[in-house]
């Protein structure tokens, strides 16, 4: 179960706007899914270690060698807004 307030909190963490008319239906859908997920509570997992990665990799590190960076115009090309050779964003302090 997830209620309206929890949904708003999670949406806030995920930076997703939700319209008023989306709230109840979304909360209901998520609750159905979460209830189904919760069936795994039946499983006894005592002593079972979590798996974060499958497979073994021995040499996952990179040697400290410089590789060419992107030309600036290429880096900036897809940006929605650019100024002074940088990515322009609304100020975090702005209201």
């Amino acid at each position: 179960m997830i209620d309206r307030d929890e949904l708003l909190h999670v949406a806030r963490l995920a930076r997703l706007a939700l319209r008023d008319d989306e709230l109840d239906s979304t909360a209901a859908e998520l609750s159905t899914i979460l209830d189904h997920i919760a069936t795994f509570d039946e499983l006894d997992l005592g002593g079972v270690e979590p798996t974060a990665h499958v497979g073994d990799v021995d040499d996952s590190l990179r040697t400290d060698e410089v590789r060419a960076s992107l030309p600036r115009d290429v880096a900036l090309a897809p940006a929605p807004a650019v100024r002074d050779d940088g990515f322009l964003v609304p100020s975090p302090q702005g209201e």
Partner: peptide
């Protein structure tokens, strides 16, 4: 006009 609204509306 503010960063948060830009984030949440863009992703919405």
């Amino acid at each position: 006009t503010n960063l948060d609204a830009m984030y949440t509306e863009t992703r919405h």
